[in-house]
């Protein structure tokens, strides 16, 4: 317990120092936040246009769909705030050998590498996503249901953990590849898959196996679908249980793989 408390305290400190650093470059920060706001605006305008012509997309009516979009935006924001920069920088740490100093610290390597820098530029996305979800709930006349909220929170955390695990797996490859520009592209592919309802793969013969692949084998489609579905659609206990199991398995596997990768670290010459 004291160990957990220590790591939470450390996370707080890392956040404080990175915020200090970010504020030293204030205009950069402001531009980034504006870009994110603009991006969400475009996304909303686009879906409003689509829903002006149709009642639902893959069985998701407008308000439900906006809840889904908000959920994706918040989750993606969370991942980008905590992990994207860190994972992206890992390849650079390997290439330059600066990883050395992180490995020398008396602290879990995975923790330090995953949370080293917190990217406050994307942190407002979490809030924007939450606001979008709240507005969607109000507009659909949603009634408060503690079970659904509880399941939503748990599966939202699972979704974040699944996304993080995939990212850690991709990141670990840098140890062997040294230059790992594919990471950003893979992440883009990942988030493109996660941002649409699972139902878009249904009803099209060639797409159905793909939908199953990305649900049960590489469970990217669970990330946003399960929390959003649990909140505004049918609460499917089987799917929730599968998500929990997949999360545990992926967290374990990605950690093992990361540790295996560190064993192969060669530490660039000084």
């Amino acid at each position: 317990m004291s160990r957990l408390a220590r790591y939470f305290r450390l996370l707080g400190s890392l956040a404080r120092y990175t915020l200090g650093r970010e504020m030293a470059f204030r205009s950069n920060f402001l531009v980034r936040v504006s870009v994110e706001v603009l991006w969400l605006g475009i996304l909303i305008a686009f879906y409003r246009t689509v829903f002006a012509r149709t009642r639902s997309i893959a069985g998701w009516p407008e308000e439900h769909y906006f809840f889904f979009v908000g959920c994706f935006f918040a989750l993606n924001g969370l991942i980008e705030t905590f992990f994207l920069d860190n994972c992206n920088e890992f390849a650079e740490l390997v290439r330059t050998g600066d990883l050395d100093f992180l490995l020398l610290k008396p602290i879990d390597e995975q923790f330090l590498i995953s949370f080293r820098r917190i990217d406050f530029g994307t942190a407002p996305n979490v809030l924007m996503g939450a606001v979008l979800m709240a507005v969607a709930l109000v507009r659909m006349g949603w009634h408060f249901d503690p079970v659904r909220v509880g399941v939503f929170l748990v599966t939202f955390a699972c979704g974040t953990a699944i996304a993080y695990s995939f990212m850690l797996l991709l990141t670990s490859l840098s140890v062997w590849m040294v230059r790992n520009q594919s990471l950003m592209e893979m992440w883009w592919l990942f988030s493109s898959l996660a941002r649409y309802p699972r139902e878009v793969f249904q009803g099209v013969a060639w797409a159905e196996p793909l939908g199953r692949l990305f649900t049960f084998v590489l469970p990217i489609l669970l990330v946003v679908n399960v929390p959003a579905g649990a909140m505004v659609r049918v609460l499917d206990p089987g799917m929730v249980a599968f998500t929990l199991a997949a999360t545990a398995a992926l967290l374990w596997a990605s950690r093992r793989f990361f540790q295996r990768a560190l064993r192969s670290y060669r530490s660039a010459s000084s």
């Binding site: 330059t96 100093f101 000084s270």
Partner: peptide, 12 residues
Amino acid sequence: VMGQKNQLWWDL
């Protein structure tokens, strides 16, 4: 301590 690498945060 490595003379060719630094562990301090550059901008802080």
